[in-house]
Amino acid sequence: MPVTHLKINGVEVPDTGIPNSGSVNLRPMGEEGAGATSHHCLTIDKLRDGTTDQWEPYDVLKNDWAVAPVRTSVPRSLFGPSGETSNDAANNTDEGLVHDQPTGLKVTVPGPEADGDPVAVFADKLAIEDLHLTGNPENKVLPVVNTAPSGPKAHRGGTTVRDDVAKDLLASSARRGAVTAVLTAAGLPFDDLDDDLGPLAAAIRDLYTDPPLLVDARGH
Rank of each mutant, 00 (worst) to 15 (best):
3 V>Y: 00
3 V>I: 07
3 V>E: 06
6 L>I: 08
9 N>P: 07
10 G>P: 01
11 V>F: 01
19 P>T: 08
19 P>D: 05
20 N>H: 07
20 N>L: 05
22 G>R: 01
25 N>S: 06
29 M>P: 00
30 G>Q: 01
31 E>V: 00
32 E>H: 05
37 T>M: 00
38 S>V: 05
39 H>I: 08
48 R>L: 11
48 R>H: 11
49 D>P: 08
53 D>W: 02
55 W>S: 03
58 Y>E: 04
59 D>A: 02
60 V>N: 04
62 K>I: 01
66 A>S: 09
67 V>G: 00
72 T>A: 12
72 T>P: 08
74 V>Q: 04
74 V>I: 09
75 P>N: 05
77 S>P: 05
78 L>N: 14
79 F>R: 02
80 G>F: 05
82 S>L: 02
85 T>G: 09
87 N>V: 11
88 D>H: 06
89 A>S: 06
90 A>K: 01
91 N>W: 07
94 D>S: 13
94 D>V: 10
101 Q>Y: 10
104 G>D: 06
105 L>D: 03
106 K>Q: 11
109 V>P: 15
111 G>V: 01
114 A>P: 10
122 F>L: 04
127 A>K: 07
127 A>H: 03
127 A>L: 08
128 I>N: 12
129 E>K: 05
129 E>T: 04
138 E>Y: 10
143 P>M: 06
143 P>Q: 06
144 V>K: 10
144 V>R: 13
145 V>M: 14
146 N>R: 07
147 T>A: 15
149 P>C: 03
150 S>N: 13
152 P>E: 00
155 H>D: 11
161 V>W: 11
166 A>P: 11
167 K>C: 13
168 D>K: 15
169 L>C: 15
173 S>K: 15
175 R>D: 12
182 V>F: 07
183 L>V: 09
190 F>V: 15
191 D>A: 14
191 D>K: 11
194 D>V: 14
194 D>I: 04
196 D>M: 04
198 G>K: 13
198 G>D: 10
198 G>W: 12
201 A>P: 08
202 A>W: 09
208 Y>S: 08
209 T>W: 05
209 T>M: 06
211 P>S: 00
211 P>Y: 00
212 P>G: 09
212 P>M: 01
218 R>E: 12
219 G>A: 01
